[in-house]
Amino acid sequence: MTLDVEWARRWVALAAQAITEAKDELVELDREIGDGDHGVNLDRGFAAVAAKIEGMDRPATVGEILTTVATTLMSSVGGASGPLYGTAFLRAGKVSGLAELGPDAVVALLEGALEGITSRGRAGVGEKTMVDAWAPAVEAAVRSAGAGDEPAAVLRAAADAAADGARSTIPLVASKGRASYLGERSAGHMDPGARSSAILLDAAARAAA
C-alpha cells in the first residue's frame, strides 16, 4: 500500500468518521478538565474538512490535501485546538509536496506536525496536552523507519505510541491550556487533545493498512 493522494483522502474520510464517533467521549473528557467543547469543535471542523476534500479537484500531492485540511480546520474549529491542529497540518503539508510518501517522508510529515503544535502552543512534553501524543508518535516513527519498516508500519507505530501517550496524560497535572486552571484537580483525567490526536493518527494508519 503506497501513501499517495488517495491515502490522504482516505485518511481525511476515516478521521472525520472517527471524530464523529468519538465526539461524545471527547466532550466528556473536556467537560471534566476543560469546557466541554473539544468534541464539538473537532466534529464541526472535520465535517467541513471532509466536505472540502471530497470536492477537491485532482490534488497532485499529499501536501496539497494536508494544506487544505489545515486552512479548513483553522477557519472552522476555533478554540485552542483549531490553530494548533491547523498549524500542525500546515507544517505537515509543507514537507509533503510529493505524490507519494516513503518511510522518511512519513517521519517528516509527523515531525512537521509536532513542530507546528509546539511552535504555536509552546508546550513541552509532560504538560498534559496533545504534545504528549505527538512527541512519542514522532519518536516511534523515527525508530520504525530506522528499522527499515514500510510506510504503513511506520504510521501504525506512531499511532500506537500516540495512544500510549494519550493514556500517559491521565496522572499528569496540566500546566498549559484550560486544564491548567484546575491545578491538582486536573490529575486523573485523560487530556482531550491528546486523545483526539491518537484518534487522528489511528485513522492515518488505518487508511494505510
Binding site: V40, M74, G78, G79
Partner: peptide, 12 residues
C-alpha cells in the same frame, strides 16, 4: 463572536 464558549477563528 466565536461559537458557544469557543474562541473565534483567525479568518473571522
Amino acid at each position: 463572536p466565536g461559537e458557544m464558549f469557543t474562541s473565534p477563528t483567525p479568518d473571522q
